[in-house]
């Protein structure tokens, strides 16, 4: 039983990391229909920004989080302004363009900072574990879980309880009519893209104490995040959250029953079966095309 509970916690921890990465992706796709293949590299930029803040200014990760959010958000805003905005009428081209941006970002980091793995130390106050019986829960992982739920809540509040969210939903439903009512859809899109990018940055900052910080770290992460978005249903916040939990738990349970390699295969088979039966994911968003 201990093994099971430990694994459930591991699954939840994986789910929280998946959720933060996938949330930004889901928002950008759900609201603008842009498949942002540079998302993994934005996560990577977040990790490197955290490293830079810690290395040069001595910031702890917790202190660095808001700065990273703003900095990576700003990068996202620039990407949207310079490239993505010109391609809204050509959704397929955005895939290629954002993929190219991803490669460029990766190479810039490799050239400017170097290819070797960077060290970021975890926050002092979150060291250690909580032990209940034989179930061990790392404080840092608990923190990530709590923060991911908070980010999900904040995102939901922004989308449904603010003027910005109302405008965004209006633009999603019908862009031209929203513009007739005086909503600047371009500005809304830029801000949404920046918000999604900022979340990617936060995800990058949060995983640095657990994973290794290298220029290629985003590539593998974005694949998992896409799985979450696809399973959850494009454009649905809670679908994304549920899918993250499902995939995290499935990965954790399969990998204890089999091993990590086979576990991953099993999870992918489940996902293929699921999208065969529900091609638009668990909770397809209600958008008009």
């Amino acid at each position: 039983m201990d093994v099971l509970f430990n694994q459930l916690f591991s699954g939840l921890s994986m789910a929280s990391i998946l959720l933060i990465i996938a949330l930004g992706l889901a928002i950008i796709y759900g609201s603008m229909g842009v498949i942002n293949l540079a998302h993994g590299e934005l996560v990577m930029l977040g990790a490197y920004a955290t490293w830079a803040l810690q290395h040069f200014f001595g910031f702890s990760i917790l202190l660095a989080l808001p700065f990273v959010f703003v900095a990576v958000g700003a990068v996202g805003w620039l990407i949207e302004k310079i490239i993505v905005q010109r391609l809204y009428s050509r959704p397929l081209d955005t895939i290629l363009a954002t993929w190219g941006i991803g490669i460029i970002l990766q190479q810039i980091v490799r050239i400017a900072i170097g290819p070797e793995s960077r060290f970021v130390s975890g926050p002092e106050i979150l060291r250690g574990n909580i032990q209940i019986g034989n179930v061990y829960m790392s404080n840092y992982r608990i923190f990530v879980i709590v923060l991911s739920i908070a980010i999900l809540g904040a995102t939901w509040a922004i989308m449904t309880r603010t003027e910005f969210g109302t405008k965004l939903r209006a633009v999603i439903q019908n862009r031209s009519i929203s513009e007739c009512y005086g909503i600047e859809s371009e500005r809304i899109y830029s801000l949404t893209f920046a918000y999604g990018a900022g979340l990617a940055g936060v995800a990058g900052a949060l995983i640095t104490p657990l994973f290794s910080t290298i220029p290629t770290m985003g590539t593998g992460l974005v694949v998992n995040a896409f799985l979450v978005v696809i399973v959850g249903g494009l454009g649905s916040l809670f679908g994304t959250a549920l899918a993250a939990v499902l995939i995290g738990q499935a990965t954790a349970l399969f990998s204890i029953v089999m091993n990590d390699t086979l576990g991953r295969i099993a999870v992918l088979i489940c996902i293929i079966l699921l999208i065969r039966l529900r091609p638009r994911g668990l909770f397809p968003g209600k958008t008009r095309n």
Binding site: S10, G220, S255, I256, N259, D260, T261, R264
Partner: peptide, 20 residues
């Protein structure tokens, strides 16, 4: 005896198994 994929980055399952 356990093998994880190259580039694998989440070892929480392996660590739980080691603990057990």
């Amino acid at each position: 005896e356990e093998y994880v994929p190259l580039g694998h980055s989440d070892f929480s399952s392996a660590i739980n198994r080691i603990r057990a």
